[in-house]
Design a protein around this nucleic acid. Sequence first.
DNA 1: CTTGTATATGAAACGAGTTGCATAGCAGGA
DNA 2: TCCTGCTATGCAACTCGTTTCATATACAAG
Lengths: 185, 185
Amino acid sequence: MALEHAILVSLLEKPGSGYELARRFERSIGYFWTATHQQIYRVLKRMEADGRLDVREVPQQGRPDKKEYSVAALGRTALSQWLHEPIEPESVRHDLAVKIRGAAFDDPAALIREVERHHRAHTDRLAHYLAGELRDFTGAGAPATPDAGRELQHVVLRGGIAYERMTLAWLDDVLATLHRIRSER
Amino acid sequence: MALEHAILVSLLEKPGSGYELARRFERSIGYFWTATHQQIYRVLKRMEADGRLDVREVPQQGRPDKKEYSVAALGRTALSQWLHEPIEPESVRHDLAVKIRGAAFDDPAALIREVERHHRAHTDRLAHYLAGELRDFTGAGAPATPDAGRELQHVVLRGGIAYERMTLAWLDDVLATLHRIRSER
DNA sequence: CTTGTATATGAAACGAGTTGCATAGCAGGA
DNA sequence: TCCTGCTATGCAACTCGTTTCATATACAAG
């Protein structure tokens, strides 16, 4: 269960509430992990009960109070232990690939619209990643000599960028194949 | 729930038993979807109860009898319906990326061995995909004018190949970054 | 003063996926 | 004869993830 560890890493980078974590999971952490607020609240509660996190009630003005979580000593050792365990190279799960192979038994033309929709979504995501890279790592406001943490964040983001570029090229390939099949009928 | 649909596609391509499906999910279908035999047997039973699959007891010699499943009319319409529904572009989940960002709070040297292990695993997977491509699509035994089904299988496999190549390039980037960080300490 | 939006947290139910265990036929080798 | 290994199917328990619903504060727009 890496959600627990993703939360530990995120809270080590900066303590925060469940709500804030949920938003990070839509942004930077979301480059490589997704989670809904329900999942996050549930896990936070459990981790706090297990003594891996500390909580602090933070009164706020102009908005509801929040609970700020930070990593306890037990959490740090749990993360460290996990970091030293080998993990399996992840296996893929692409709904779209199932659909593509399924198109052999259906109308390929319907799939073209779907693939184009995915193409647009990945184009948007790539633009979003590139904007983030410019803002945080390669732009004018970024530090000239980044520390190890920022270097590591950057290389993960570069992975997301590479993934989106690869995906877009592949979707072009898929579209060309679908058009070829359609014209051959 | 795309496992159901992945099974429908696979059984349309060729009917087979739960055991055979489990092995396809380790091979060609495994390029883009994974499932264990327990999952498969459970879903097969449910789909048969729902009338989406037909079963046929096949006596065998030299080995235990098997149940051969094939797609019923209800299964075909269920697949067709799903193919026409839009799906969300999949979001990524990379345990390794969590580890990489976590390395900022731990020993980066330990991560280098892990990343090298993943690099080897992806190298093997790429070689496996390329061998499959040569055997089924680009080699001497492959048909010169493939039908739509084979074209689609091929473009999915090309996606797997592109993914592995991208991943290997990224892992090289990660390793270079980790070495740079280590030498700077 | 109602409606909409953003912040903030949570329960409950369900569906999907993993892990461990159990059973059984049949073949080949020590 | 026993052990190993491949084929073949399945149950049970558990964890993880998704969906739906519910609650509450606060501010801004109409």
